[in-house]
């Protein structure tokens, strides 16, 4: 069994109004060194796969088809073997 931890973020260069608002809030709290904030999504999938390569292939496929919008988003993921 594997656990996939998927991070979805807006592509570099795509305006992130949410990130900008968070950055503004941090600045108002006195954190002036924050140059940029990007807000993204974090998904955790538990996969009933025994083969790592198979699991990896399926995660990529799921990202391409549903979990990520390639027009505005990028993703990275980690795959970790877990025991039940």
């Amino acid at each position: 069994m594997f656990q996939a931890r998927i991070y979805v973020t807006l592509k570099q260069g795509i305006l992130d109004p949410q990130g900008n608002a968070v950055q503004g809030a941090l600045a108002s709290l006195g954190y002036q060194n924050v140059e940029e904030v990007r807000v993204g999504k974090y998904l955790v999938l538990s996969l009933a796969h025994s083969d790592r390569a198979e699991a990896e292939k399926e995660v990529r496929e799921m990202c391409a088809r549903l979990l990520v919008n390639p027009v505005i988003e990028d993703y990275t993921f980690e795959l970790q073997e877990v025991s039940l």
């Binding site: 992130d16 109004p17 949410q18 919008n69 027009v71 505005i72």
Partner: peptide
């Protein structure tokens, strides 16, 4: 329609949030 690819592009959060 955008998500389905029947029209090009994507929607982001309103700039004002």
């Amino acid at each position: 329609l955008l998500e389905a690819g029947l029209l090009p592009g994507a929607m982001r959060r309103n700039e004002s949030l």
